[in-house]
Amino acid sequence: MSNQKTITVAVTGLNNIDSPGPGVSVIRGIKDSGLNARIIGLAYENLEPGIYMPGLVDKTYLIPFPSTGSEAFIDRLAYINEKEGLDIIIPNFDSELYLFIKYSDQLLNMGIHTFLPTLKQFEERHKDNLPEYGEKYGIKMPVSKAIQNSKELSNLPKPLSYPYYIKGKFYEAFKVNNNNQAVSYFNRLSAKWGLPVVVQQAINGTEVNVIVLGDGEGNTVSAVAMRKQYITDKGKAWGGITINDERLLEITHDIIKKTKWRGAMELEMIKTDEGEYYLIEINPRIPAWVYLAVGAGQNIPEMVCRLAMGEKVIPVTEYEYGKMFIRYSWDLIGDISDFEKIIIFGEL
């Protein structure tokens, strides 16, 4: 343990399930770092595994879903801050980012630091804005269209054709080959994540991903490229390996330079057999596989904490290629009294 001042870091995304939130990996990164950190878990559901994992969080609080409204959300954070004296919050869900960004100044007044993109940066990379985004920043993207009504699916503009992906506003994507499938998935995705639903042309190739951290001034502080080796039926990586794809990293640096992105993000790209790269999605936060980047030599959660606290972080370019992660599931044995505390008091 270092002698430096203890910082208290609150982290969301403790749902380490088959479609895992990034929280547990973020916390592992912080614990592996030189930071002297106390970890506060923020959970939306009382069965998020991270609440119960031994040695992971010092304390967990339930927080209201962002859809409950900003007042309840901020009030709860104020209560937690009063109890714990938070220094940093690292939000890890797309659906909560809007509130954290919008109220970042208010949080700062409470002494809570964040390191997040601006609202403009966050909004312009939404799935339904990707074509404009690609045009503005000179990034190649598959043809896509935001759909408000399932009737639009039978009359998609050219050159959109089967197979294509139909994607939820925040999460989930399905490959479809006919209109019946498309309508069925449209109804499912719009009911779950709201409108619009995005239709995106499928591109043949290999999916490659990059986790990247921008300093908000156009500099890439950290970037690690990965290829998924095993993908679950939910489209999540269950195994992956770091790669040395120079062109991919060049594109990444260029995006950060042009957008001046502040904070972490994940770029999801398709590399075709001809060596062309298509950006299919930008996740505006740390991805769940961040611990692979830590293992490969770039501790992004630590860097996010340092940047949030106003420290200067020297950009890192080196990392180890051929580092792998393999997820696994593990049955934790808990006690009903812990569950009771979360249910009754909303904290554990």
């Binding site: 990965m226 790669i243 120079e246 290629y321």
Partner: peptide, 19 residues
């Protein structure tokens, strides 16, 4: 020369992650 090759005959291609 960019390939990582072990004496056991395992080839790792760092640019794509293939083996």
């Amino acid at each position: 020369n960019s390939l990582a090759i072990s004496e056991n005959g395992f080839i790792f291609k760092p640019s794509t992650g293939e083996s």
